[in-house]
Design a protein around this nucleic acid. Structure first.
Lengths: 110, 110
DNA sequence: ATCGTTCATCGTAGAATGACGATTAGTTAA
DNA sequence: TTAACTAATCGTCATTCTACGATGAACGAT
């Protein structure tokens, strides 16, 4: 059940402004999910420090295998927290500041 | 592996100010984990709207079983996002504003 | 003391996560 | 083209999450 940790099983009928809230609730959960693992937080911290970072550099800094880092990067990308730009044979990752702003705003509504 | 989604497997030796960062990274992940499910977000929204809320009222508003709500409340409690106060046969839950502030501050450092 | 209410916990089942090594796809260099 | 390098994906396995019903514990009322 609970496919990909979004969408509640028994979604109540939403009306008017409440529908927005439902969307926001899914969005907040998705964004938070991106930060919900220490390794992903560490990746974001690294990207903050270095502004931008090639995937290989990230892997070097992390205590896990390359494939694991790649999986976490995928999660971060799906949440919209980072973007990846292909640069020749490498991929250059950077934080999406708008998503962090969005996250802070959604938390601010709580 | 990865016990309870905190603590990285292969923790590098931490020194000086970096140790703080490691702690913060775990803390941020733990707080985010609390928000990382739509139902938990919905619970927090409900607590925001009503200031405080008896467990039974929360269950009524949620599309899942009582035991499931109870489990999610446990997660929120463990993250420090909510507190529960025993009030006779009921339990009265309320948000811990300090934890939300902490969360925002940690995100702000990214 | 007994019953009913409220909520936490137990036990379980299915799905998802997180980790790894191996493989594949894509790009650059020789 | 071939070889080397980079990063994503695949396949697998152990663990964790999420959901449920059932049970248990704590309290108030009768």
């Amino acid at each position: 059940m609970s496919r990909r940790r979004n969408a509640l099983k028994c979604e109540p009928i939403t009306s008017g402004s409440c529908a927005v809230t439902r969307q926001q609730e899914e969005r907040l959960a998705a964004l938070a999910w991106g930060l919900a693992h220490p390794l992903r937080v560490r990746i974001l911290q690294l990207l903050t420090k270095r502004e931008t970072c090639v995937c290989g550099e990230i892997v070097e800094e992390m205590p896990v295998a390359q494939s694991t880092v790649s999986q976490h990067l995928k999660v971060l990308k799906e949440a919209g927290l980072v973007h990846g730009e292909i640069d020749g044979p490498r991929v250059c990752y950077y934080i999406n500041p708008a998503s962090l702003l969005e996250l802070k705003e959604l938390i601010g509504q709580l």
